[in-house]
């Protein structure tokens, strides 16, 4: 059969192409240009070559921020993924309560990030916040503005509160797609609850859990607004994650060159993870025959 060839659809992509060029490609090119130059303002630039990259790769400050970022992402993944799966396993499968649970779970996801930060900033205050005040009344010395450990606990609990729902909802969707026949077979074999989870539910959730882990990793790796609103990166530098450090460098100190080099390395790291994410996902789909 002769297929008709019509390439006119490419013109439909043109608006998006132009939009992306102006919103992403041109700014990114400018960042690349900044990263090899120094400026003292007034749009005057001086060539410095790879100096900023070299400096940043040996910078204690960047290593520390990267270390904190990795610790943060690891902790929230280690909490949110098992907790999300646990919640999904215990949610009602159908009926009114299933809908109620779904709506309640979705609520934190709908709140803008800076509002989440403000909620927790007030919630944790010892003088007027419910959490801070209660902890103080219980005799616990809690102060997220002074104590680094308290600041970390606050930021992590906030992220868990904000994002566990996402993992739970994805895991719930994965569980719903398992045909009843699997459970019936398990019942005939007198499989224990643990075996049902390990041999049926977990393998069937593999795809959605992979999405959940990678989305949460990337989001937490780029986190800015919530910790910035709550702790501002403090006390000291205790909760200064990569993006907070980057903004301090670019807008606080107006070091455009180093900040541009920093952004590029940050961007490359995120791009590598996104690529792995995309590749793993598309290959999983192909294996499943979708």
């Amino acid at each position: 059969m002769q297929k008709t060839v019509n390439q006119k659809a490419w013109f439909l992509v043109l608006p998006v192409f132009l939009l992306v060029a102006f919103s992403a490609v041109i700014p990114l090119m400018t960042v690349v240009n900044y990263s090899v130059q120094d400026t003292f303002g007034n749009n005057q630039f001086f060539w410095v070559g790879l100096e900023w990259f070299s400096e940043l790769l040996h910078s204690e400050r960047l290593h520390a921020a990267l270390g904190r970022q990795i610790v943060f992402s690891s902790i929230i993944l280690a909490i949110e993924v098992p907790l999300g799966v646990f919640i999904a396993l215990n949610m009602p499968q159908k009926g009114l309560w299933a809908s109620v649970c779904l709506v309640l779970m979705a609520l934190p996801l709908l709140i803008p990030w800076n509002v989440v930060g403000t909620i927790w900033q007030i919630f944790g205050r010892v003088d007027i916040g419910l959490l801070g005040h209660t902890l103080a009344a219980l005799g616990i010395d809690y102060n997220y503005t002074q104590d680094p450990l308290d600041a970390w606990v606050t930021v992590i609990v906030m992220d868990v509160w904000h994002w566990t729902s996402l993992v739970a909802l994805l895991a719930y969707a994965g569980l719903q797609s398992i045909p009843q026949a699997y459970y019936q077979a398990a019942k005939i074999d007198q499989a224990s609850r643990w075996s049902v989870f390990w041999f049926i539910e977990l393998p069937k959730m593999q795809g959605v859990l992979m999405i959940a882990i990678l989305i949460r990793f990337m989001d937490s790796f780029m986190i800015y607004t919530e910790p910035f609103v709550v702790t501002g990166g403090g006390p000291g530098n205790a909760t200064t994650f990569l993006s907070i450090d980057l903004v301090k460098m670019a807008l606080g100190q107006f070091d455009l060159g180093p900040a541009a080099a920093f952004s590029l390395m940050y961007f490359l790291t995120v791009m590598l993870v996104s690529w792995v994410f995309y590749t793993v996902m598309t290959n999983l789909d192909k294996k499943a025959g979708l």
Binding site: I26, M29, T30, V32, N33, N43
Partner: peptide, 15 residues
């Protein structure tokens, strides 16, 4: 295009 602060090496890179 002056605001983009182009340099010869970055032009070559993108080309």
């Amino acid at each position: 295009m002056a605001w983009m602060a182009w340099t010869l090496p970055t032009i070559v890179f993108f080309v």
